[in-house]
Simulated assay, not measured.
Amino acid sequence: MGIQQPLTYLFVPGNRPERFAKALASGADRVILDLEDAVAPADKAKARDAIASWVTSLAASELDRLLVRINDLTSPHHADDLLWLQRTNIKHAMLSKCELAEQVAGVLAHMQPGASVLPLIETVRGVLAAVAIAQARQVDRLAFGALDYLLDLDLPGPGFALDSAALTIAMAARAANLPPPVAGVTPELDAGQVQSDLSHARALGYGAKMCIHPTQVAVVREAFRPDAPTHAWAQRVVTQWQQSNGAGVIQVDGKMVDKPVLLRAERILALAGPSQSL
């Protein structure tokens, strides 16, 4: 069924080291140590030092779950972030306001071999360059910063223009054979709003979500989980397909099932998790 991609990405301010270990223990698939919006300019250096000190104590499996969000190319802190990356064993970086594939290469040049970059697309320029960014070397996924995009295009709120940008990024990711992109944060902690935002993002082709609080992690993970009837249907499809000995087309619940339907059923079982899958 393939490797299940991360579903939840939890932000933690880089200048709050007392929260780092808690974030790793929160159940989030990935933890984003933030050097950008969550950290005041006067605290950037302190945040870098705190992260660099903490990651030296981590096991390889824990280090692989971490990303560091660095400041964008226009920021006066970007160059310092890159120099700092050279001196750490950080394996994954998130690049704020990525607008060119060349910017990805610029970050990788300051990281260890085998490192990866997750471009955060937050501007009109970034959306227009999404196809090239998705095809850049060592990009493992795209993410959409919807709140910053609203500001960049001076939009009054969500609507067609925001959805169009989100869909463009999702199509760029698919064309580059990347996993579905990561949806932006929900500022509200209300579980209903988080679920609603995720449902909307999934309808636009997104397969993960950024979180700003540990309580959102469980909400997002549960929202991805298929309901009981859908899960049972997927189990029937996969089981009967396996029993058909490669028939090509079978019937399940009175409906025809071919390879695309089987693939959808396998994805549903993967989202259900190991405790519920076949």
Rank of each mutant, 00 (worst) to 15 (best):
D154N: 11
L153G: 02
I169F: 00
A170I: 15
Q138V: 09
A136C: 08
A161D: 08
L151A: 13
L150Y: 12
G145D: 10
L142T: 04
L167G: 00
A166S: 13
R137I: 05
L151G: 10
F160W: 14
Q138R: 09
A161P: 01
L162G: 01
R141C: 11
A143L: 07
Y149P: 02
A161N: 09
T168K: 08
A165I: 11
R141E: 02
L151E: 03
A136H: 12
G157D: 03
L153S: 04
L147S: 14
A166M: 05
L153I: 15
L155A: 13
L162R: 03
D154F: 00
G159H: 15
T168W: 02
G145H: 06
D148F: 13
D140H: 11
A165S: 05
L155F: 08
A170M: 05
G159E: 06
A170L: 11
I169G: 01
R141Y: 05
A136G: 05
A166L: 07
L155R: 02
A146D: 15
A136S: 07
Y149V: 00
G159C: 05
G145M: 07
D152S: 13
A161V: 10
S164R: 13
L150W: 14
S164P: 04
I169P: 00
L147C: 05
L150R: 11
A136W: 15
D140A: 04
D140N: 09
G157N: 03
R137F: 10
P158S: 11
T168P: 00
A166V: 13
R137T: 10
L151P: 01
L162A: 14
F160L: 08
F144S: 03
P158I: 10
P156A: 09
A165R: 03
P156Y: 13
A143G: 10
V139D: 02
D140V: 09
A170P: 09
L153P: 01
Q138D: 12
D148T: 12
